[in-house]
Write a protein that binds this DNA or RNA. Structure first.
Lengths: 343, 343
DNA sequence: CTTGAAATTTTACGCGCGTAAAGATTTTCG
DNA sequence: CGAAAATCTTTACGCGCGTAAAATTTCAAG
């Protein structure tokens, strides 16, 4: 790294003794120039530390190297973790990830999509708000930009969907709980924020009926993304009052379960599957902190890394195919039972 | 929103019956054109839904409307939450936030900084890795781009630092613990990842000495950002072996404390400040989930919203002042004791 | 040394927009 | 109503780079 700052590619080309178009070619694909030329450019690069102006580059390229990532709520550890995975792999693949959060709001999601469109991304990985999304806006966006949906399905939108198999995973958990104790009641939000909530609801009902039990739903009020609080307050109310329909509660997601665990603890209930326990709580997602609740949370895992990896490889495939896949794909990962102490 | 897509400002200007330079002026500052003209442009805007090309705009403006945000690790709820706050306020202020995570790695932080530089941001809010940062790289960056540091101080870098007052907050907690029971030992990582760890260490030692106690340090191995695991494993080791120096443990941060809580629970210790309890655990940060541990975690709060807000207002001030503040500022927020059940 | 393909240089244009300058138009106000 | 002031239109240039076409050089093989 040397003193003087390089203003533009013209100047850098002059200093390295190569013509500007060739240098431009190099930056697009280093292997596209002769070995000797490449060496010279790279030597100059070390000395002067020049980088092409991103804006000028992107203005002229039809296909930028930007990959947009949109998640509904970044402060949710699930999305934070999945975003982290995607970002890292993106960089390794030579792309430039740009991360957005919808902050749980429909209008912001639409705004983000508009912004993203003008960023001319090569592709976008979108975890939409789902039912709360402006379907028209998402549809138009997917029409303009190669998009892979993940986590939350909106049928027929995007080139593919990558998510988890809720009927399978919820079924797994219901089966386990029924086999080892009382059949579970199901704790969920009355007006769910989480895009997968509806599917899990349906999956729970179906599984219970399959095993010959009547579904027992505990639908609690609350809005927003403060799931722990919602689970906690619901738990406190129920446990102080009529209690839950059974001594086993399956929560629509781990964050609700974490809140319920706190409420159970404060209410003096002994949670777990061991002797002396009188209450079982299970969740769904294998949230990063589920391992560290007291007692540790029995849940169903989602394979974060796999979802990230598959989504990315699909968007790359789409990009290489020119922006569309011949047929819409649906990739569902199976959940695995994570047996811990709470149920 | 009408049918045909507008290609560029030229076309949009023609459709709205206004000259392109005036339209350009409008997009820079809607109030800078006559009321009547503005109305006409906005009418056309509704009809045709045009947005200026971001890249072309940014290429020509010296001062973009981009605000860079860099955090060391996005999957840490503390940073996720603070990033969320900053992003939202940024948008409200008419700026365009671009979020980056260093993923805890020095090289990536430097890369992010380089990328950011070529993005010509109006300003940057940087939470550096701290001691693990490449100081030279950060220094050069701050020299080129108006930067406010937050969370982690690197002295004399950037236009200002916004963070929390560790001596005060840790002192508060030590005082409380000493007053209400055995003096605390201090659980921390041997090679801390978290940038504030050193300061908290020093603050703990100073506070203990102030109250006439010998510091009792429990320094545990482990690297990376998986703090809960590190706290958990350390706890299991200690509790199976010699135990902790005292029945009260102050953890360097809440995530370690959450891990330790899990270990204590599994080891059959009764954690809390009430009768029948034999172990106290306290943390630091008021992590979003600290409220929902079992028992709920006593900790010291950091005012996330205030840190976000102050950092942003400082960067705006810097931008308006032309890129530099006449004098470097240091803003420290005081922590508040959050008394819950664990200590 | 000749030949031809591959790589590079030269030249030139365009991307979409910011911005400056000069002239035309509209608004404001005495 | 008339002149100054404010605003707008026209015209023109530049930003930094991608990219195409033609001219030139390089390199390996004959």
């Amino acid at each position: 790294m040397d003193g003087r700052r390089i203003k533009n590619m013209e100047e850098f080309a002059a200093l390295s003794g190569i013509s500007r178009p060739t240098v431009s070619k190099y930056f697009n694909d280093p292997t596209s120039v002769r070995q000797a030329t490449r060496k010279r450019i790279e030597a100059a690069l070390e000395q002067y530390d020049y980088r092409p102006n991103i804006f000028a580059v992107n203005q002229n390229r039809r296909n930028t190297k930007n990959i947009g990532i949109v998640v509904p709520y970044l402060a949710d550890p699930f999305f934070a973790e999945i975003a982290r995975n995607i970002e890292q792999r993106c960089i390794e693949a030579g792309y430039f990830p740009i991360l957005f959060s919808s902050h749980g709001e429909k209008e912001l999601e639409t705004d983000v999509l508009d912004t993203l469109r003008s960023l001319k991304p090569a592709g976008v990985l979108l975890a939409p708000l789902g039912r709360r999304s402006d379907r028209g806006a998402v549809e138009r966006f997917c029409h303009d930009v190669p998009t892979i949906l993940f986590d939350s399905e909106m049928d027929a939108l995007g080139e593919a969907f990558v998510g988890s198999n809720n009927p399978q995973s919820v079924g797994l958990m219901v089966e386990y709980l029924c086999r080892t104790g009382e059949p579970p009641s199901f704790l969920e939000m009355k007006a769910p924020t989480n895009p997968n909530a509806r599917k899990r609801h349906a999956a729970y009902v179906a599984a219970m009926e399959r095993f010959g039990h009547a579904p027992m739903l505990v639908r609690v009020p609350g809005a927003g993304w403060d799931f722990e609080r919602i689970g906690y307050e619901a738990g406190m109310r129920q446990l102080a009052g009529a209690g839950f329909p059974t001594d086993t509660v399956l929560c629509s997601n781990d964050r609700l379960a974490i809140g319920l665990l706190a409420a159970a603890f404060e209410s003096g209930r002994r949670v777990g599957h061991q002797d002396g326990s009188d209450f079982r709580i299970a969740g769904h997602d294998d949230h990063p902190f589920a391992r560290y609740t007291s007692p540790s949370l029995t849940t169903v895992s989602q394979d974060y890394a796999a979802i990230a990896e598959r989504s990315l490889s699909l968007i790359f495939e789409t990009i290489e195919a020119g922006g569309t896949l011949d047929q819409r794909r649906t990739i569902l990962f199976e959940g695995k039972l994570v047996m811990r102490m709470s149920a």
